[in-house]
Design a binder for these strands. Structure first.
Length: 292
DNA sequence: TACCAGGTAAAAA
DNA sequence: TTTTTACATGGT
């Protein structure tokens, strides 16, 4: 069985830039200058996915899976993660004449955000990141991953819903989570395992419906819903306006430098519809690369 | 040492 | 119905 497939992304896509932009973000991924490596699950089984540029003009990406998976599964997984269906040209046309975002979009030409392999990963990640600093959340999550995930060639496949559903509150508290968050994560995992919740249903929903779907899940509020929509689903128009980091970011680029309120963020991003979330991502990357 | 950090659900008023 | 509270670790 062949273990590689070729992807043909729509429009511009600078893989090296996109890797640089997210360097140091996650644990299930590792970034080298020209190679994206991620521990993903295909059909529940952990495997290593590696993506590199196969050709320019026309741009083609090669995705390799170890162990090899059915071609249709490899394609579906890689296209989802790499966001090949997103055509940046329409976004660039929209922001070309706009102050701040226009020049930044031009300087980051070809930048895309990778998605997480599964919405479950993103949902659990969002729960861990509630209220406490990203650094604290990272170390808590890392303990959880190394205890209950699976090693994949130097990376860690995120714990499966089955693995987390079987844990006790104490198991997760011992990783550093609050009792409340432990309940959220175990409850979410159990619903997925027993089949009463299918997060992938959101893939075919409107932004609004998907947001409501999220918020109906115990442990996911408005912030987590928006966070999951933009980062997990890759919805280009979604802005987590409740997000502390984003409030500071938008205040820096489009305000007086002070942190904005939630309504202020919403208002400031309004002209960038239907690419508000993508625009915010470009600002975040510009900040990470040029102002830190 | 405090205090804040990319929130949320449940209790109390 | 609206307001207040408890919560975990890491950085400064």
């Amino acid at each position: 069985m062949t273990k590689s497939i070729i992807l043909e992304p729509k429009g511009p896509y600078d893989l090296a830039l996109s890797l640089r932009a997210i360097a140091g973000f996650g644990t299930e991924t590792r970034e080298e200058p020209d190679l994206y490596r991620a521990a993903v699950r295909v059909g529940g089984k952990p495997c290593l996915m590696q993506v590199r540029e196969a050709s320019r003009k026309p741009l083609r990406l090669e995705a390799t899976f170890q162990p090899a998976q059915p071609p249709a599964k490899m394609r579906e997984t890689a296209e989802w993660i790499m966001h090949t269906d997103l055509d940046l040209r329409r976004f660039y046309r929209l922001v070309r004449e706009r102050p701040v975002v226009g020049p930044i979009a031009k300087s980051l030409y070809g930048l895309k955000a990778m998605r997480t392999a599964s919405l479950f990963v993103m949902a659990v990640t969002a729960i861990t990141e509630q209220q406490i600093s990203l650094a604290a959340a990272y170390s808590i999550r890392q303990r959880m991953i190394e205890r209950y995930g699976e090693p994949v060639d130097g990376l860690w496949a995120f714990p499966s819903p089955e693995a987390l559903a079987a844990l006790s509150i104490k198991d997760l508290k011992d990783c550093g989570l609050s009792g409340r968050k432990a309940e959220y994560i175990i409850g979410l995992s159990q619903r997925i395992v027993e089949g009463s919740l299918e997060l992938d249903e959101m893939k075919s929903m409107s932004d609004e419906d998907a947001r409501n779907f999220c918020m109906a899940i115990r442990g996911l509020g408005p912030w987590a819903a928006d966070y999951l929509l933009i980062r997990g689903l890759g919805r280009a128009d979604v802005v987590p306006a409740e997000d502390l980091g984003l409030q500071k970011l938008i205040g820096f680029y489009m305000g007086n430098g002070e942190r904005m309120t939630t309504p202020q963020v919403r208002e400031a991003m309004m002209p960038l519809a239907p690419y508000r979330g993508l625009a915010a991502f470009y600002l975040m990357v510009d900040y990470r690369l040029n102002h830190r």
